[in-house]
Design a protein around this nucleic acid. Sequence first.
DNA 1: GACATATTTGCACAAATAAGCAATAGTTTG
DNA 2: CAAACTATTGCTTATTTGTGCAAATATGTC
Lengths: 110, 110
Amino acid sequence: MDTQSLQQLADLLKALGEYNRLSLVYELCGCEKPQNAMCLCECCSVDASVASRHLKILAEQDIVRIEKSGRERKYSLNRQKIANELRLLAERVEGSERCAANDDQAVSGG
Amino acid sequence: MDTQSLQQLADLLKALGEYNRLSLVYELCGCEKPQNAMCLCECCSVDASVASRHLKILAEQDIVRIEKSGRERKYSLNRQKIANELRLLAERVEGSERCAANDDQAVSGG
DNA sequence: GACATATTTGCACAAATAAGCAATAGTTTG
DNA sequence: CAAACTATTGCTTATTTGTGCAAATATGTC
C-alpha cells in the first residue's frame, strides 16, 4: 500500500472518527430519503454552521452525497463506498497472517 | 446506539485515522510475530517517544495488544477485534435501509 | 554498582480542530 | 425588489493533537 492510499484511508477514518460527524452518519443511516442540513444539525444539537462544516468534511471523503433541491441541499449516505472501504480494511487486518514471510525467517522453525 | 457506544466507536476510528498510527497498524498487519517499539518506530520514521505514544493510543482502543518481554514490549494486532468493529459498522451503514420507517411516512407512497 | 538497551514521561511548541456567532450567498415566494 | 428560508463562509477562541528532545524509568548484562 502506497503512501497516498494510506493517507486517504487515514483521512476517511478520521472523518468518521469524530463524535458529531459519526452521529450525522448514523442519523443518515436510518434515513432512506436524503435529508437536509437543518434536519441533520438537530440530531447533534449544534449550530447549523457546524453541521455544514462537518457535512462538508464527510462529502470531501465521499462519505455523503449532496444533491441540490431548491434552496435546500439533500444529504445521503454513500453506503456502498463506506462499507467497501471498511470491509477492505477489515480483511487486510484480519487475513494477512500469510504475509508472515515478511518476518525475518518467520515463526519458530521453517 | 447510545451516546457512549457512539463515542467509543468514534474514538476507535479516530485512533486509526492518523497517518502514522495507521502505518503502525499496517506494519503490524504484515507481521505474524509481535514486534517491539524500536522496530515499529522505524516504519514511520519518528522518534521512539512518538511511536510509544501512538502505540499507547492504539492500545487504549484495544487495537494492539502488549506483552512484556524482558526490557522490551512486544506489540501485536488485535486482528479479530478490529475486523469485527469495522464489519459491524459496514453492515450498519450498508444494510439499514429497512430502517426507513424512521422516516416520516417514508418514501413516496405506501 | 556501572553500563547498555528499551520504553515512557515531562516539557515546549506549532499546527490542526471544533465550536459559535455574525455576515453573506443562493433560492423561493410575495 | 423585499422578505423568508436554507446553507455556507469569515472571524475568533479554546482545546486537542502530533512532534522532538531531554530526562527518567525499567530491565538485562558485566
